[in-house]
Amino acid sequence: MSGGHIDFNKTKSFLIDTTKCTGCRGCQVACKQWNQLKAEKTVFFSGEGYQNPPAMSEYTFTRIKFRDYQKHGQNEFAFYKEMCMHCNEPACASVCPVGAFKKTAEGPVVYDEKRCIGCRFCMVACPFGIPKYEWSKAFPLVRKCTGCYSRVKEGLQPACATACPTAITYGNRADMLQEAERRIKSRPDRYFQAIYGKEEAGGTSVLYLTHQPLDELGFKQVTKRPLPSYTWQALRLVPGIFLGVGGTLSAITWFQHRKERIRREEEFKNSRVKPEQKEEDQ
């Protein structure tokens, strides 16, 4: 689980202004370089649109999605950078039986591959479908965007944010939110009136600004409540239920056996010997 109390105003966050993205995919390349990820052999147009590779995978932690649309009768592109959202209260961290995921105070949600047992619950739990698996291996591990924790820890910016010429701003979450709101207010015609990531999944360390409505760009509609709370509302009852069931069943056992014992004693008393007599003799 997320360790201790993290001030989510101070966690480092990405502000990704998709209206400024040119689709150069410098972030994709920088990500592969910094994380030393293998290239994938892909065929163009094998996915939904122009984006390549067709999907995120164990070798691709971030990717620019292309969405084509028409503006004034002209074909236009909108872009959306897909990556780990680094949730404030990550579902992956809450469901992992060995606590391999952790929300760091700096912001990134990191994965400790030495702990992982490979149950893939994180993949089922993640509302954004981010953790990917090394399906090619006999003993696979989970792979996902690290938020460049190794760089952030040392005061650098993540590789993709460094490479991006236009769209990514990186800084404290409160500052990024303020900046996003300022942009929306000052250019209302340019921006769709929402910050994706402000409240999604209880708030994330990646914030998006768009021109198009969110669902048109392929943003998933996600609950506003932190996901761990959904399971915790049931799991918090566990100790009580455990002891409650034990106590109730013990009481029933005692009662049922007492009934039986009394019945047998009555039978015995009504029969021949008198055990009370015997005890007095002794």
Partner: peptide, 18 residues
């Protein structure tokens, strides 16, 4: 994926995990 590490469940408790 890593059955040989199954014992980790006993070493690293995460009570928030079903």
């Amino acid at each position: 994926g890593q059955p040989q590490r199954g014992i980790n469940v006993l070493l690293y408790w995460n009570v928030h995990s079903p």
